[in-house]
């Protein structure tokens, strides 16, 4: 029960107040895209966060904590590894589990992770995200 409540609260929270209009537009556009992606067959949810707000929408709320940790770990690892091997800026990281696939990326200040079934092509999701 508390977890469900938390999910709803985060998902329906009012848009963040960001002084920079461009960022606000980007954020709104991303969130709108995420809503569309959520409807894509096989997508099981997403986690979106930036410095001031977060949105989590997962079909299975019991996995919110685990998914949030793995999402954050993946994005951190992406940063660390691209620096370590001098590979420039990290674009996106895909973690394929035996049950679920996860696509994590950073766009501006926005960190987002999309969870999907194994059969979904993450490239298609990326395209939808960047429209």
């Amino acid at each position: 029960m508390p977890r469900k409540k938390l999910t709803r609260e985060i998902t329906t929270e009012s848009p963040p107040i960001i002084e920079n209009n461009v960022e606000t537009t980007d954020t709104n556009r991303l969130r709108a895209n995420l809503e569309k992606i959520k409807e894509h067959p096989g997508v099981v949810g997403y986690i979106f966060r930036n410095t001031s707000s977060a949105a989590i929408d997962l079909k299975d709320p019991s996995k919110i904590i685990d998914y949030a940790i793995i999402s954050s770990s993946a994005l951190d690892a992406a940063e660390e590894l691209s620096t370590l091997f001098n590979l420039g800026a990290a674009k996106h990281i895909t973690v394929q589990g035996k049950e679920v696939k996860m696509l994590a990326t950073t766009i501006g200040e926005n960190k987002l992770t999309i969870f999907m079934e194994k059969t979904v092509d993450p490239e298609k999701i990326l395209k939808k995200l960047r429209i």
Partner: peptide, 9 residues
């Protein structure tokens, strides 16, 4: 974990 792929610049 099956695979992890990191795409960078």
């Amino acid at each position: 974990i099956d695979t992890i792929t990191l795409q960078t610049g």
